[in-house]
Design a binder for these strands. Structure first.
Lengths: 395, 395
DNA sequence: AAGACTTTGTCTAGATGATAAACTAAGTTT
DNA sequence: AAACTTAGTTTATCATCTAGACAAAGTCTT
């Protein structure tokens, strides 16, 4: 019988202030009068809220704009340099850290590649990356407003990493030590959830409200945005769509089930199958996605056939996702998206005639446009949003 | 660039009034003081809101309660007879209509069974049922406050039935003619969505906030409740989880795809397979679920084996749903639930060892407890909720 | 049985914040 | 230059919540 959130004047003010700030972010440069117009808030209300936002340094006034037959408007802009946010993307063989302003512009970037490191070693890289980014941040009113970390695994609602199989991590709490060390808000989230949010805010998902982001890397993770908000299951599940059965008579998966999607449509599946087919890299190096790209560019028959097959398997899962969530848009991201041009035809072929007629045209299928930054950008967005929400609440 | 909803005093009042009413519904009989306590609203605020609710006849005062060392409290109760709601469940071979009070108690019930009727004929039954229920409703302050209709098909957000394959309906608008005839709010919704809502409010889903309701009848439909709210895709999809591929090499489905879940785990699949196995009804009648039940009760080997197989196939889909939505609870409803005792072991067997270890214990799997009333009850709940929301908004 | 608590519910004054309308500022049009 | 327009501020009013006083109606202690 938890307490319900009641409503009072503070709620109202916070809500309206947030609306005003959002409009400035969305339509800047914009005048007070124009905000009042577009939000249906009273001119006086807008004026007083704007003045508070000015005091808090979250927005600033630029020179006067063009007159439209009367007094010239004072233009308002979002002060994206009032603070900076750090976003980290921990992958299986890399750690990417970025520093962004409040608008999500990337100011600094630190990429470390590695293979087969222990948690302790990755932790050191993480701390080093954060320290470097902090030292590189320009001076600002609010400083570093938070650190967000995306990981390929299951993160519960308390921010604990319950399970990250591809990293061999179990029950790891990054939140606590980081908060103790840096004393600013820390947010840990599943990589696909963050990627979905990144694409929604800064990438190809910008015009859609219901998006499923399919992160296909070593494994398959899925981030779901419903009504502009990230949906997380009761335990913060997300990732486990990779373990959807698509072949009841298929091979065994380490999850205990049979015929999981991940076994047919991930980077892991791609590389395994390539080896089986005898596709080899020219030099001695391990077979990699990059090798396959160069082979595909040379029209290597075996490779093209393999990519077509992988595309078909991806397509089956995409079709399932469409039938399950009926989203406006499905975005394919993570490492597989570099293969876009070779797998797209096969994916589309799977979708044609497999989706109920009335909806064939409505599905928007896109590939990530943020290249490898979706997750890190999503994480900075989480912390930035948290910061702004809390700022507005305070007096 | 649609207008954003702004906040003002009316929002606040409506929100708080709704909180007060909800608490009365939840904990009645309850005193004003106790509401103030449990909601953290001020005593005075509660008093004035309660007085408005009394004026509107939505609640009433009963005699004084027990003293706990001071003045005796005046107990408040929700006035469930202030109005009545009509809920209709249109199935492939039946039409069920119920009349409930505002609390969801069933007052009257009208069931019509049929086979193979045209839209026009079903429409007549629908109108007749509604007219009968209206005439049977007791006199009340607000009268009939709305009509809700659940159908096995895709309903878009405007309430149009885009496609109901098992009924052979296409682009049918029930909303308009009904609203013209009766002049009260009409709500048309997918059968599984309504069922999910019904179970959430009145059935086995009462203690959970994230529920997936799987309606297995002639086809398979799914209703999803996330954070206590019904989630509908952009087009109001819901139902189409039945067309999730679970066997990429499986048989063709009329949806154009292969190996759809529905082909392995629905009532249709059950009856088809039974015929193939030579299971026959004793008398001349068509083979039906009832026949299979009586055979199973007599421990007919073939039948038991068949039910086990169907259970396994249901289990696969359930596992997928768990991995996709990570709900607190999965409820199996509609006609298949009558087979509960024979299919449950096979379903559970599929789930064991197929769900990632940390979450095995957390899944709550239940069968519908409202028997065949989930959908109709969900529909009355939709209209009741709509009515109350609108009442509170008004002065 | 009387006086001292306790609990319920109402009432009043004060605070907050939205709105409408008046007002000031600073432009354009005729 | 006068009339009109648009932008932004100020003021009076209104709605609503809150704290706290107060009245009503009970119980508990001596």
């Amino acid at each position: 019988m938890h307490d319900v959130k009641t409503w009072n004047q503070k709620t109202v003010k916070k809500g309206n202030k947030s609306i005003v700030l959002d409009k400035i972010k969305e339509l800047s440069p914009i005048s007070r009068a124009s905000i009042a117009n577009k939000t249906s808030l009273n001119k006086g209300t807008v004026s007083s809220l704007v003045n508070e936002l000015l005091d808090e340094d979250l927005i600033y006034e630029s020179g006067p704009g063009e007159s439209s037959g009367g007094r010239r408007p004072v233009l308002l802009l979002f002060n994206e340099t009032a603070g900076y946010s750090i976003g980290i993307d921990i992958g299986v063989n890399y750690l990417l850290g970025i520093l962004t302003d409040l608008k999500g512009n990337i100011i600094q970037e630190q990429l470390t590649k590695f293979t087969n490191l222990s948690f302790e070693e990755i932790r050191k890289i993480l701390y080093r990356t954060i320290d470097t980014l902090i030292s590189l941040a320009p001076p600002s009113h609010y400083g570093i407003i938070g650190i967000g970390i995306g990981v390929p695994g299951i993160v519960n609602n308390e921010g604990e990493i319950v399970l990250a199989p591809n990293l061999n991590w179990n029950n790891i709490n990054l939140h606590e030590p980081l908060f103790e060390k840096y004393g600013i808000p820390i947010k840990v989230e599943n990589e696909a959830n963050a990627g979905a949010y990144g694409e929604k805010l800064f990438g190809t998902g910008i015009y859609f409200e219901n998006i499923v982001y399919v992160s296909i890397g070593m494994g398959i993770g899925v981030g779901v945005i419903l009504n502009n908000e990230l949906y997380k299951g009761i335990d913060g599940f997300s990732g486990e769509l990779g373990h959807m059965t698509i072949d009841i008579h298929g091979e065994n998966c380490r999850c205990g089930s049979k015929g999981c999607w991940e076994l047919y449509a991930s980077e892991q599946a791609l590389l395994k199958k390539a080896k089986q087919l005898g596709i080899e890299s020219k030099n001695q190096a391990d077979l990699s996605v990059e090798t396959l790209i160069s082979l595909a560019k040379n029209n290597d028959e075996k490779t093209l056939q393999l990519l077509k097959e992988i595309g078909q398997h991806i397509g089956i899962g995409i079709k399932n996702i469409f039938n399950i969530f009926n989203p406006e848009q499905i975005i394919i991201g993570n490492s597989i998206s570099t293969l876009e041009q070779w797998i797209t035809p096969a994916i589309k072929q799977q979708l044609i005639n497999q989706i109920l007629q009335p909806y064939q045209d409505e599905l928007q299928l896109d590939f990530s446009t943020l290249s490898s930054h979706s997750t890190a950008l999503g994480m900075t967005a989480f912390t930035t949003e948290y910061f702004l929400e809390n700022r507005l609440q305070q007096k």
